[in-house]
Structure formats: structure tokens, C-alpha cells
């Protein structure tokens, strides 16, 4: 295994027992997280992005089953370790920041105590833990930490609450930070500050970050590498530049061109239809039914993953040597040209 790889997920399959059958939420996901990088996992709701990371943290709901695959971290397979060991890893080695800071915090416990809880479990004395909690609150940019450490979550604004959640995640001194849509519930100006904070602490502590989101703007700001998920699979991975400027999968094309940017004037190219029912996922490429570039084989056989560069992989039949030559849509090309131009100006 590559020395740099800190976490490696291999062919992970997770399903949920549900009324009506097994929902195949994650269908063979593999990715590596390298030390010091931010890997963004992008996808719509139901694409399996949250479920994949919940599996890493060992916090899948009781009706979930890991059918197959491994999650290698520090020489251990996290799908096989017992709950006691998982408890040590979770929160200590891997920190988690959720979308909704209010429901991630205990409403009837002072925030200071919630941060100290982690520290005390790690064996710090009460006084030490208090001082450390205070320092953590300052680190995440909470003004008047001495006063606010005695307050309850409801006394904090959304952005400040998310800072507390980040402080709790950092209290375990983790090497990996998993952020599951950490700014979706926040206003743009607050979001900008929280994203800056995550980038700063990542640099300072040399963290590796898995960042889950559906917002491509946020991805552009945060990600070193990007994995695009659709219907329980990673359809394309690459560096941020590769995904934004040389996307190869039709779903990535559709995603990039479906949202207006500040210069869009023409009609949006919407993705028709809706994501497939994951109780009976379609045969072949799951995106085929919504894909205007779908080939006949897309409906029959699942595409293999093609390697475009050392870092850039895409699972689409369009990359097969005998596939017809299909270029990305013209409006996307135009947009990429605009993006590069704006990048040169900046």
C-alpha cells in the first residue's frame, strides 16, 4: 500500500433492510485518502456519499448491512473490528462534523463540558481538560471563550455551533476529519468563514479531510481530489482540475452544466428524470436512463473504470476504444473556457 495512503476503502457494499426489499445504497465503492489532502465526495441525496462515510465511522443505523468490502485504516479493517475498538478510533483518530450542528450537540449540556467529555475520556484531568477546551474554542475562533464555555448550545448562532462541533471533533486530536455537509445549513457568509476555518485547521494539524457535499462551489474551494458519486457508485475521480476542466463522465458533465454560474444566460440543461430506485438498481450504467449520450451497451452492462491519468478515473462506456467519439456538451466547453479565463484574471 502507498505510504501516503492513510485510509483505504475497497469495494464497499452497504445495503439497508427496508420495507420492500434491500436498498443497495453503496454498490462497490473504492477510494484512498492520502495524508494531508482533502477528498471531496460529491453527489445528490441518495447517492450513497453519507452512507460510505458512516460506514467508515462505524455509525451505520441498525438496519444497515455491510455486504462486502474493507475499510483499511492503520493496518486494521474497520469493518471487522469490535465496537470497543471502534470506540477508540471514532472521535480519537477520526473526527466527524455533521450537517446540523444543533442536533449534533446535547442541548442540556454546557458546550464546554461537551468538549471536555472527549478530553477526559482520553485521560486528561479536569483542570487540564478545561484549559484544553478553552484553547480549542479559541482555535476555532469563538470570541470570549471564557464566558461562552459555560453556555448551552441554544445560546450560540448556527455558525458558532458548527465551530463548537469542530472543536469537539478536534478534541480527540484526530488525523482524519470527516465533514458531512458541514455548511449546508448555514448562510453564505457564515459558510465562507467555516470553510476557511476547516482549511486553516487542516493546514495547522496536517489533517486529512473527507468532505461530503452537493455544492460544486464549495467543492471547488475545498477539494484537492474529487470523487463523484451516483446511485451508490463512484462514477469519476480525479484532481479538482481534472474534474472541473476535463470531466469525462456524462453525469459529471450534467452536474457541472445544470447549475447557473454568474454568467449563465442561456437555458439550463437540466438532467431529465430522477435518480433510480435503489431497491432494484438498473442494469448496466445506472445513469443511462437520464443520459442523453447513453449507448446501447449502457443499458446492458456496467461500464468498467477507465484510467485517463494517474489520478483521473471514470466509469463510462464512452471511454471504450470502440465507442463513438462523443465530446462534452458545447455549453459546458464554453463554461470551462470562461472558468479558465476567470482563473487567469484572478
Amino acid at each position: 500500500m502507498d505510504n501516503d495512503v492513510i485510509l483505504s476503502v475497497k469495494d464497499l457494499r452497504v445495503s439497508f433492510r427496508a420495507y420492500g426489499g434491500m436498498v443497495q445504497a453503496v454498490r462497490g465503492v473504492s477510494f484512498d485518502l492520502r495524508r494531508g489532502e482533502t477528498l471531496a465526495i460529491v453527489g445528490e441525496s441518495g447517492s450513497g456519499k453519507s452512507v460510505s462515510t458512516k460506514a467508515v465511522m462505524g455509525i451505520l443505523p441498525p438496519n444497515a448491512v455491510i455486504d462486502e468490502g474493507s475499510i483499511l485504516y492503520g493496518g486494521e479493517d474497520l469493518t471487522k473490528v469490535d465496537e470497543a475498538r471502534m470506540h477508540e478510533i471514532r472521535g480519537h483518530r477520526i473526527g466527524l462534523v455533521f450537517q446540523d450542528p444543533l442536533s449534533a450537540l446535547n442541548p442540556i449540556m454546557k458546550v464546554g463540558k461537551q468538549i471536555m467529555e472527549v478530553l477526559v475520556r482520553r485521560g486528561l484531568g479536569k483542570k487540564e481538560a478545561y484549559d484544553r477546551a478553552l484553547q480549542l474554542m479559541r482555535d476555532v475562533g469563538i470570541p470570549e471563550a471564557e464566558r461562552r464555555i459555560e453556555q448551552y448550545p441554544f445560546q450560540f448562532s448556527g455558525g458558532m455551533r458548527q465551530r463548537i462541533v469542530i472543536a469537539i471533533a478536534l478534541a480527540g486530536d484526530p488525523e482524519i476529519l470527516i465533514c458531512d455537509e458541514p455548511t449546508t445549513a448555514l448562510d453564505v457568509t457564515v459558510q465562507a468563514k467555516i470553510l476557511e476555518l476547516i482549511n486553516t485547521i487542516k493546514e495547522e494539524r496536517n489533517l486529512s479531510v473527507i468532505f461530503i457535499t452537493h455544492d460544486l462551489g464549495v467543492v471547488a474551494q475545498m477539494a484537492d481530489r474529487i470523487a463523484v458519486m451516483y446511485a451508490g457508485k463512484i462514477v469519476e475521480t480525479g484532481t479538482a482540475e481534472e474534474i472541473f476542466f476535463e470531466p469525462a463522465h456524462p453525469y459529471t458533465w450534467a452536474l457541472l452544466s445544470s447549475m447557473p454560474d454568474l454568467e449563465t444566460k442561456e437555458r439550463l440543461t437540466a438532467i431529465p428524470g430522477a435518480p433510480p430506485n435503489m431497491i432494484a438498481p438498473p442494469k448496466g450504467d445506472a445513469f443511462a436512463a437520464r443520459n442523453r449520450y447513453a449507448l446501447a451497451i449502457d443499458f446492458k452492462q456496467e461500464p468498467p473504470t477507465f484510467r485517463l491519468s494517474d489520478t483521473h478515473l471514470a466509469a463510462t462506456w464512452l471511454l471504450h476504444p470502440s465507442a463513438p467519439c462523443v465530446e462534452m456538451p458545447a455549453e459546458l466547453k464554453e463554461r470551462i473556457r470562461r472558468m479558465k479565463e476567470a482563473g487567469n484574471r484572478a
Binding site: V188, T189, Q191, A192, K193, L195, E196, D215, L216, G217, V218, V219, A220, Q221, A223, A240, E241, F244, L256, M259, D261, L262, M339, K340, A342, G343, N344, A346
Partner: peptide, 20 residues
């Protein structure tokens, strides 16, 4: 101006240099 400077744009080139 503050509000506009806070919107993340789907463009890694400009995002990395963005001044809020």
C-alpha cells in the same frame, strides 16, 4: 460586496485565490 465575495463559485482556479 461582502455577500458576493462569500459565494463559492464552481471554479477551483478562482476559489483558491478568493478574497472574502
Amino acid at each position: 460586496r461582502a455577500l458576493l465575495s462569500a459565494i463559492p463559485q464552481p471554479n477551483p482556479l478562482t476559489e483558491r485565490k478568493r478574497q472574502r
